[in-house]
Design a protein around this nucleic acid. Sequence first.
DNA 1: AGAGACTTGTAGATTGTCGACATGAAGTCA
DNA 2: TGACTTCATGTCGACAATCTACAAGTCTCT
Lengths: 111, 111
Amino acid sequence: MKSNADLLQGTLDLLVLHILSGGQQHGWGVAQALKDRSQDRLIVTQGSLYPALHRLEREGWIKSEWGLSDNNRRAKFYRLSPAGKRQLELETDRWRRYTAGVDLVLSGAPG
Amino acid sequence: MKSNADLLQGTLDLLVLHILSGGQQHGWGVAQALKDRSQDRLIVTQGSLYPALHRLEREGWIKSEWGLSDNNRRAKFYRLSPAGKRQLELETDRWRRYTAGVDLVLSGAPG
DNA sequence: AGAGACTTGTAGATTGTCGACATGAAGTCA
DNA sequence: TGACTTCATGTCGACAATCTACAAGTCTCT
C-alpha cells in the first residue's frame, strides 16, 4: 500500500516554512498544525520532521531557540528568518507552477 | 537551484498512466506529451522516464510491444492494462486528496 | 509508582530522480 | 559519401528525502 511519502517529497519544506511564517512554533507543534489544518490529510512522521527542521536550519531559513511549551515541557522553538521568508515565496511559486502543470495534463484530453 | 525533481516524485506514475489512458504511446512520445500539455512545466529526463516505464510494466499496470513510430523508427509502445486503469483512478484520488490538504494548509491563516 | 501524552533525536533501508554516458537508426544537406 | 540532427531506448552511479524502528527524557494525572 502506497502512502503519501512520495507526494510529500518536495512539499514538506514549503509546508513547514508556511506554518512558521505565522510565528514561532516547536517541531511537535508544526506536525500537529499540519495534521489539524489539512484535516488529517498530511501526516508527517518524526523521522521526516526533525531531519527536515535541521535541514532548514542548516540552510539558514529558520532559527531555533530552546524554551518551554504550553505543556511546560522543554521544546525547541523555530522561527522564520528573512531568507526563509524569501524561500517560502519561492517554494510557493514552484508548487503553484507545478500543480498547474499537472492539472493541465490531467484535465486535458487523454491520449 | 532547486529543480522539480522532488515534486515529480510520486506524480510521475500518475502522469504516465494518464497519458497512456488515451491510447498506446511510446516512451519518447509520453515525454513529449507531458512537456507539451503542461506547457513546458513538466520536463521528464530519460533517466527518470525509462526506469518509470519499466517499473510500471513490472507492476503489471502497462504492457509493451515493439513497433514503428510515426517517424519510421523502432519504438516500444505501451498501453494501459485493466489493473493500470484501476491504479490510475487510485493515484488520481490520492493526488486530489493530497493537493487539497496542501491547499488547506497554505490558504489557512498562518501561524 | 505507573501510565500516557508530549518532545527531541538518530540509524539503516528503501525508493526515485538526475546527469552522464552508450548505442543505433532515419532523414537532411552539402 | 560523409557529417549532423532528431528520434528512440537504455544503464549506471551519485544523491536526496522519506519511512520504520529505536532510544531517551519530561510532565501530569491517578
